[in-house]
Every structure is written in structure tokens, then in C-alpha cells.
Design a protein around this nucleic acid. Structure first.
Length: 256
DNA sequence: ATGGTTGCTTAGCAA
């Protein structure tokens, strides 16, 4: 089973790229973030023609997440549903072939100390509580997405330059750690211990050519699936060329 | 300290 996650920064701007990528990579599941469209405007027909079903938690202009799958998905859940603010479309979950899969777009947080950064920390805490309430670490489950946190310094090209930013701040890392400590494994780190692997490069400052990136997109698995994870990678090629997303797809393989 | 780029939406926000 081949699972991928990709912040596409607008599915409408990136549709041809996504279709081409699906054609060559043929993942069983592709989690999308920042689709920036409502469910009605989501290009479901074009993706269906490419062989993929879609479940969507969409929104106009900002945010928006989806799960594409070759097999039909079931048990779709949308949002955190905990009575807190769910006005931003940042979470969708579904069952695909006996695996529960979540596509998450964690708030970026703008600036450390801002209201948005506080919202990010609260949102990660709500995500941890969501898992506690609605899932078990003993079931096959994947949390995929743009988690907007580089977990460690080895996930950052220039850690000293990013240490006080929203992607690396100790409070952000601790908040993600509490999610992971519920019972998840970073599948990428099962197969790569070294630094130099990134999933996001700012559009500005020639960040990509300089490989000034951060690893903020993740495929996290519960133990039953982590045990079956036979490989992981980041498709840096997909960040190249004309009009790329600022993120590259992350891939994990699980033996079935 | 600011700006650099991209997308959505149409001046400014978010990333």
C-alpha cells in the first residue's frame, strides 16, 4: 500500500501537476492540503477519470483538505467536532481498505506570540484529544499532512535561522510531540536518520535551488502500521519546474 | 527590521 501526502497550494492551480503525478506514482492514497476550494468546486470528475475517489473538507480561498483513494473510502469525518472553532477546513478522515486515514493541515501560526500561534498550539492540543477520544493506538491509523512543524533540528537546513519561528519553536515542537506521543511513529524516520531531507521550501529567496528547506509534511502511523512500513521518501522532483507547489509530496510504503 | 514569491481575489491576506 502506497500512501502519499501533498500540500498542493490550490488544487485548481495544481490540477495538471497532480494528475501527472498520480499517473506516474499511482499511490493508493493521496492526502491533499490547501486545496483552497469548496467541495462543490473540487475537481472530482477529473480525478475520478484518473481513477481516484475523493472525500473533501473544502473551503473557499484558504485551507481545505481531501483524501484521494483508488478504493472507495468510507466512514468520512470532517473537522474536529469538539465544540471548538471548526470554521477552518483543516481535517478530514476516512477509512480506506481497513486503515483509518486523516489528512490534516495544521495552522501555520504566522508569528511566534501572535493569536495565530496560540491557535496553532490549541489546535494541536485539540488534535491530540481527538485521537484520544475517537481512535486507538492499537488500530491501523495514519495521520498525514502539512503539520507545519519541523520536529527536530535535523529537519531544518539552517536550524539556527529558524529556531524562533512558528515551524521550529519549542512550544510548537512540544505540541506536535504530544500528538505523536499518543501513539504515532514518524514513518520517514524509520528509514532515514540523517538530515538534508525537506518537504517545503519558501517560494522566496531562491530557497529551493539553495535547498533551504524544512521537513514539515509527515506521514505518522500507529504501531500496527509502522511495523509494516517498508519504505519512505520525499519526491523532490515534484517541487521542480514551472508553477510548483511550495511543498513536495511525501510517500510511505506499507506491506499488505 | 524588511523583503523576497505565490494564490486567491481584486488590495490585501495568508503562507
Amino acid at each position: 500500500m502506497k500512501i502519499a501526502t501533498w500540500n498542493v497550494n490550490s488544487i485548481r492551480a495544481r490540477l495538471e501537476r497532480v494528475l501527472a503525478w498520480l499517473k506516474t506514482q499511482r499511490p493508493d492514497v493521496l492526502c491533499l492540503q490547501e486545496i483552497k476550494v469548496t467541495g462543490e468546486a473540487f475537481p472530482a470528475e477529473a480525478l475520478a477519470a484518473a481513477g481516484y475517489h475523493a472525500v473533501v473538507n473544502g473551503q473557499r480561498t484558504y485551507h481545505g483538505v481531501a483524501i484521494l483513494s483508488r478504493e472507495p473510502a468510507s466512514d468520512v469525518v470532517v473537522g474536529l467536532g469538539d465544540g471548538g472553532d471548526d470554521s477552518q477546513a483543516r481535517l478530514v478522515g476516512a477509512r480506506v481498505g481497513g486503515v483509518r486515514i486523516f489528512s490534516a493541515y495544521v495552522p501555520n501560526g504566522a508569528e511566534v506570540g501572535s493569536e495565530k500561534f496560540a491557535y496553532k498550539l490549541v489546535w494541536l492540543d485539540r488534535l491530540r484529544r481527538y485521537l484520544e477520544a475517537h481512535a486507538s493506538p492499537n488500530e491501523p491509523l495514519l495521520l498525514c499532512g502539512d503539520l507545519n512543524v519541523a520536529p527536530e533540528d535535523r529537519d531544518v537546513a539552517h536550524p539556527e535561522a529558524w529556531s524562533d519561528t512558528v515551524l521550529c519553536h519549542p512550544d510548537a515542537r512540544a505540541a506536535l510531540r504530544r500528538v505523536v506521543d499518543w501513539g504515532l511513529v514518524d514513518t520517514f524516520r524509520l528509514h532515514h536518520a540523517e538530515g538534508g531531507f525537506y518537504s517545503w521550501w519558501d517560494y522566496r529567496q531562491l530557497s529551493f535551488p539553495k535547498n533551504d528547506g524544512l521537513r514539515i509534511d509527515h506521514i505518522l502511523a500507529t504501531a500496527p502500521l509502522a511495523k509494516r512500513c517498508t519504505g519512505s521518501s520525499i519526491d523532490r522532483e515534484a517541487r521542480k519546474g514551472k508553477q510548483p507547489s511550495d511543498h513536495a509530496p511525501v510517500i510511505a510504503i506499507f506491506e499488505t
